[in-house]
Simulated assay, not measured.
Amino acid sequence: MFVRIVKLSFAEENIDVFKANFETVKHKIRAFEGCLLLELYQDKHNSNIFFTYSYWNTEEDLEHYRNSELFKGVWAKTKPLFNAKPEAWSVDKIALLH
């Protein structure tokens, strides 16, 4: 499993625009081949900061998504809303406790 974490920071006036856009595309992203899980988090103390967590079968599946028309469309609508450069990490899950 391949895990991708992305930190997104938006201008305050763009938060609702981002949330509305995410609502329209989240099921398409989750249904993309190789995507196992998609989560969106909002920071409790800095409401303009969000994190996406996505789980992929392989790194190649993520790269296939990142080169897709779906991603290009999502990114074209999201990028102008930022107030800081996004940050991304690819990580290996070490432990999961329930």
Score class of each variant (00 low, 15 high):
residue 30 R to M: 10
residue 21 N to P: 00
residue 28 K to P: 09
residue 57 N to V: 09
residue 65 Y to K: 00
residue 48 N to Y: 04
residue 94 I to Y: 04
residue 48 N to W: 02
residue 21 N to D: 14
residue 59 E to G: 04
residue 86 P to A: 00
residue 56 W to G: 03
residue 39 E to V: 10
residue 2 F to I: 08
residue 14 N to H: 07
residue 16 D to F: 11
residue 48 N to T: 12
residue 34 G to S: 11
residue 35 C to F: 09
residue 24 T to S: 15
residue 25 V to L: 05
residue 27 H to W: 07
residue 77 K to Q: 14
residue 72 K to C: 06
residue 81 L to N: 01
residue 48 N to L: 02
residue 70 L to N: 06
residue 1 M to G: 14
residue 31 A to S: 06
residue 15 I to T: 02
residue 63 E to D: 14
residue 66 R to C: 01
residue 54 S to M: 01
residue 66 R to W: 01
residue 35 C to I: 09
residue 29 I to C: 05
residue 86 P to G: 01
residue 57 N to C: 06
residue 60 E to Q: 13
residue 60 E to N: 13
residue 19 K to D: 12
residue 45 H to N: 14
residue 85 K to F: 04
residue 71 F to W: 05
residue 53 Y to E: 00
residue 49 I to A: 08
residue 89 W to K: 11
residue 85 K to D: 12
residue 33 E to D: 12
residue 21 N to A: 06
residue 4 R to P: 01
residue 18 F to V: 03
residue 25 V to M: 10
residue 5 I to T: 14
residue 49 I to W: 04
residue 35 C to H: 07
residue 38 L to H: 01
residue 1 M to L: 13
residue 33 E to P: 01
residue 70 L to A: 06
residue 19 K to M: 12
residue 6 V to D: 13
residue 51 F to T: 01
residue 94 I to F: 07
residue 54 S to C: 04
